[in-house]
Simulated assay, not measured.
Amino acid sequence: MSKDKSLYPEILFHFCNKDGMFGILKSTFRVSYAREKIIGQERSREIGVPMVSFCDLKLSEVSSHMSKYGHYGIGLTKEWANKNGLNPVLYISQYSPFTDGLIQGLDGIHAHRRKLEQSSDSNELSTDYMNIFNTYRYVKNYEAPLHRKNHEKIEKYRFADEREWRYVPPLNTEGLAPFVPITTIKTEKQKAELNESIRHIGLQFEPEDIRYLVVERDQEIAELINHLELVKERFSWETLERLKSRILTAEQINVDI
């Protein structure tokens, strides 16, 4: 009996701009703080979360995603994702009592933890509270307004269509605040300075983990191959030859897939 085909692929994609993709191939993924706002009926909460985001979409589904996040992408195996502790986000409805209850509960836990920090014998309990509060770093509204720089606001954007997975560094990562007040990344300058302070924190991958590379236009394929050859200390000749056959273009995906 044949195994039923899953609705989900065995690949996670990360889309970005051209410079971002070439930088990732040269070194690795860099963790950066993203503004995350959870909206309920009566409550909302917004903080900065350190992460690298991916989408759990098939090639035939990525066209809309590329239009919002960039036409340059890297597709890596789910085996790599599991090995590195990535996790799908939990989508929650703005209109569910669960959402307001979650926000209220997490706010209460965080407030109690701050009080516990004043006690010298509270480390173990404080850690337990942080593990619960960590839930917030993997939660996103099913549907909410989408704000993007230099783009018109989308009032009802269905974030669940992205099927997001996240890499969020462990709570005890040295030199990294597990979350930051939203006031610290309100401006592009603030966000850039904060992200520069955590440039040493990356998400590693090996060239063998890559399944697909995506560029915007056919004319850029040769440029990408040249770039891979320039960083050949990371890419063996065999890997380069394999990846050359796995390069796709956004134009090709939009028209043919």
Rank of each mutant, 00 (worst) to 15 (best):
L125C: 00
T249L: 03
S32D: 06
N195L: 10
Q94Y: 10
Y95P: 00
E241L: 12
D56R: 03
G202E: 09
E10N: 10
Q204V: 10
E251Y: 05
S64E: 12
S53R: 03
F133V: 13
L146A: 02
R35V: 15
E36K: 08
S53Y: 05
D256W: 05
F205V: 08
G175V: 09
R166A: 10
N123R: 02
L176S: 10
E196M: 06
E206Y: 03
K115F: 11
Y33N: 01
I103V: 10
M66T: 03
L240R: 08
R30S: 14
Y129S: 02
E196D: 13
W237H: 15
R234A: 01
E10F: 00
E188Q: 10
H151R: 13
A222Q: 02
T187E: 07
N195C: 03
E196H: 13
N141L: 07
E79S: 14
L240K: 03
R30N: 15
N84Y: 15
W165F: 08
L25M: 00
Q94A: 11
R114A: 14
Q219G: 06
D19F: 11
T99W: 04
E196V: 06
K149W: 03
E124P: 01
H151C: 09
C55G: 01
V31K: 02
K189T: 15
Q94R: 14
R217G: 01
V255P: 00
H200A: 14
L243F: 07
D19W: 03
V62R: 02
L125W: 01
V214A: 04
E152V: 08
L106I: 15
T184Y: 13
I198L: 08
F22N: 00
T183W: 01
V89D: 02
K37W: 02
E220A: 02
I182E: 07
I74A: 07
L243R: 04
I74E: 04
K189M: 15
V62H: 02
H112I: 13
E162Q: 06
K115W: 10
M66V: 05
G23Y: 01
R35D: 14
Y95W: 11
E196S: 13
S60G: 01
